[in-house]
Simulated assay, not measured.
Amino acid sequence: MYSFTPCTVHRFLLLLLSYLLLGFGSLQAAPVAASIAGERGLAFRLSLDGQPVSRGARPQVYLDQLRLGYHWADFFIPAGRGRGYNYRTQIFLPDGFETNFVLVARPGFPPALRTVSTVPLAPPVVSYPTPGHPAPGYPAYPSPGYPAYPAYQTPVYQLAPAEVDNLLQAIQRRPFDDARMAIMRDALRDSFIESEDARRLIKSLSFDENRIETAKFLYSRVADRHNFYQVYDALVFASSIREVQEYVQSVR
Rank of each mutant, 00 (worst) to 15 (best):
I202C: 07
A160P: 12
Q153G: 01
P120S: 06
D186S: 15
L15A: 11
T99L: 10
P124G: 07
P124S: 14
S127R: 12
V251G: 09
D178N: 15
F75Q: 03
A215W: 00
D197K: 06
Y87N: 05
R180M: 15
P6G: 04
Q28P: 00
H133E: 12
G84Y: 06
A198Y: 03
A179W: 12
L205R: 00
R174Y: 07
A105C: 12
R189M: 08
I77Q: 06
H226K: 10
A112D: 11
S250E: 08
G137I: 10
S191Y: 07
V102L: 13
A238V: 07
Y146C: 07
L205E: 00
S250D: 09
F92D: 09
M184H: 01
R252W: 08
F24I: 08
E194D: 14
Y2G: 01
V32Y: 02
F101L: 07
H71Q: 08
W72M: 11
S239N: 13
R180C: 12
D165N: 14
I212Q: 00
H10G: 02
P6Q: 06
V32G: 01
L46I: 06
F109M: 14
L66K: 05
T8A: 11
V119N: 03
G80M: 11
F24H: 08
E98T: 12
V9N: 01
I91L: 15
S143C: 07
A198W: 02
P131G: 01
R242Y: 05
Y62T: 11
R83G: 08
S35G: 12
S127V: 14
N210P: 04
I193H: 06
A33L: 05
R114V: 10
Y141A: 03
Q169E: 15
F217E: 01
A105V: 09
V126G: 02
N100K: 15
A112E: 12
G132W: 12
D165K: 15
R45N: 05
D224K: 03
Y70N: 08
I36V: 15
T118Q: 14
E213D: 13
R45F: 02
A29P: 00
D197M: 03
K216W: 01
Y128A: 10
Y247P: 04
F237M: 08
R173H: 14
A79G: 13
V116K: 02
V222W: 01
Y157A: 11
Y229S: 10
P161I: 04
A37N: 05
G96M: 11
R180V: 11
R173W: 13
G69F: 10
V236D: 08
V126P: 01
E213L: 05
L93Q: 07
Y85C: 10
V126W: 12
Y141P: 01
A170Y: 10
I202E: 00
R211P: 03
F4K: 04
Y2M: 09
S143Y: 06
L46Y: 09
